[in-house]
């Protein structure tokens, strides 16, 4: 199964970090994987996004026009990326910052107050990590254990003191993602 995953938000939310963490974790799990950061005019507007393709066999295009999994962390990214999610795919919405309700009915929308949950866990800065946990829990693209084990690779060494809170954020998100998966299974 191929997972074509995109994440988007504004600069400083750790979008590139969670993209790289997902990529490292997939590599660690023995999957084929690619990561492409947005580097063009789309990032000049203060938004950041990246694309991660996880495959059991072969990564063809490292970009996608219709992601099977999407994380939006800011209102701008919600407006831009909700329409492109592939039918049957999932959209993780950070409701701490996004008031807009998702209008798509042909995708699984998982609403998560990521900043609020992150603050409760001890640091507002791990909000995107909560969202990544949700996506991984729902899609099964990579194991949460592999994500946690890859934190050392992605966080700079002076941030390694934050690994425990990042792990908690991933776990909390994964629980929400798995729950959503079970709900979706019941619906089907």
């Amino acid at each position: 199964m191929d997972h074509e995953i995109m994440m988007a938000g504004f600069g400083g939310q750790g979008i590139m970090s969670i993209g790289q963490l997902l990529t490292y974790a997939a590599m660690r799990e023995g999957k084929k994987v690619s990561y492409v950061p947005a580097y063009g005019p789309e990032m000049r507007g203060g938004t950041a996004n990246c694309t991660v393709i996880v495959s059991d066999r072969y990564v063809g295009s490292p970009l996608t026009s219709a992601p099977t999994g999407m994380i939006v962390m800011s209102p701008e990214s919600m407006a831009k990326f909700q329409p492109v999610v592939r039918r049957g795919g999932c959209l993780v919405v950070n409701t701490s910052l996004i008031d807009e309700k998702a209008s798509r009915r042909d995708i699984e929308v998982i609403e998560v107050p990521a900043n609020k949950l992150a603050t409760e866990l001890g640091s507002d800065r791990v909000a995107s990590m909560v969202a990544l946990g949700v996506l991984a829990g729902y899609t099964g693209a990579v194991g949460i254990d592999h994500l946690a084990a890859s934190l050392k690779k992605v966080l700079p060494s002076h941030r390694h003191n934050l690994i425990p809170v990042n792990e908690k954020a991933l776990e909390a998100g994964a629980a929400i993602g798995r729950e959503a998966r079970e709900r979706a299974a019941v619906k089907v």
């Binding site: 690619s34 990561y35 950061p37 580097y39 990564v59 970009l63």
Partner: peptide
């Protein structure tokens, strides 16, 4: 550009 910008194992 894609090849230059992308990360892979």
């Amino acid at each position: 550009a894609v090849l230059g910008q992308m990360m892979e194992p």
